[in-house]
């Protein structure tokens, strides 16, 4: 204890510098959010005049936004795409992650290493063949088309594989003795017990799907399939940008993930770290 006290006294300037750096970093990280939210309630003119406080133009911005852009369609499309992608991705990837651990043999280990290689394949490199393949199969402008590439990812499988290693084998053995089938063991024993891993994987997958831009832009070209990131990108494609309206659109796109982030911060962090542990 006395050690710490001495150190504190000695290093006062260093400590002050440390706090200053952290405060600065926190401010720079958070300020653009504040600016986005405040600007959503201000007129373009007020934003140009650097108004830093909430204004009274929110309803006006909302009217301009909904009159010019299919906000409801985009929001519901994004919600649908992200939700269905998350459910399917979690099921297929956890099934595989479980399979790789519970039914381990040397061939499956080999297959797993092969799958890990797919993490090195940049999405930009497979964009064109995927687009051509999906067009041939008639998957343009469809939910299946937009979600399929994110349903089975080496990252998620790896995450579930790591999680499964702490799953007690005794439960599986006991269930087998009770005569439960292999799939039912997975559905009825594994899934409920592994809730924390599912929560973490769901948070990351949902956010990625909600925020996805390049692949949806390529595969969803029909206006009725527009997503939120595509919509906010469109609001900028005019000669004179109405930033009040744009920032409202950006806020509407960001608030769901922001809320999710605050609610499930721990899961989110665990999800990202799924690959390190």
């Amino acid at each position: 204890m006395s050690q710490i006290r001495i150190r504190r006294g000695k290093l006062r300037p260093a400590r002050v510098a440390k706090y200053a750096f952290l405060v600065l970093a926190s401010f720079l990280s958070a300020f653009p959010f504040y600016w986005m939210l405040v600007s959503a309630t201000n007129s373009n003119q007020a934003i140009m005049e650097m108004r830093m406080f909430p204004g009274a133009n929110l309803i006006e911005n909302w009217k301009t936004l909904t009159a010019g852009y299919a906000l409801g369609t985009a929001f519901l499309n994004s919600l649908r795409n992200a939700t269905v992608t998350t459910v399917c991705a979690l099921f297929i990837s956890s099934l595989a992650g479980y399979g790789f651990v519970v039914y381990r043999d040397k061939y499956k280990n080999l297959v797993m290493s092969l799958l890990m290689l797919s993490m090195m394949v940049p999405a930009a490199a497979t964009l064109i063949p995927m687009f051509r393949m999906f067009s041939r199969m008639g998957l343009n402008n469809s939910l299946l088309g937009v979600m399929l590439p994110s349903v089975a990812t080496a990252f998620l499988i790896f995450m579930f594989r790591q999680g499964t290693q702490s799953f007690p084998d005794a439960i599986i053995q006991a269930a087998r003795i009770d005569g439960l089938g292999e799939l039912r063991i997975f559905l009825q024993m594994y899934m409920p017990i592994m809730k924390p891993t599912y929560a973490a994987a769901a948070t990351v997958t949902f956010m990625n799907a909600w925020n996805a831009y390049l692949w949806p832009l390529v595969i969803l070209q029909s206006p009725d399939q527009i997503t939120m990131p595509m919509l906010i990108s469109n609001t900028m494609n005019v000669y004179v940008v109405d930033y009040g309206m744009v920032m409202l659109a950006v806020s509407i796109c960001t608030i769901p993930t922001l809320v999710l982030f605050f609610a499930l911060q721990r899961s989110f962090v665990e999800g990202i770290l799924g690959s390190v542990k």
Binding site: S26, P32, W35, V246, C253, Q265
Partner: peptide, 23 residues
């Protein structure tokens, strides 16, 4: 500190591009 510095991860790349384009 940790939450605030980690916060930008919650935005889509398109959103943060637009915010910074305005700035």
């Amino acid at each position: 500190f940790r939450t605030l510095i980690f916060l930008p991860c919650a935005t889509s790349l398109v959103s943060c591009s637009i915010i910074f384009k305005q700035l």
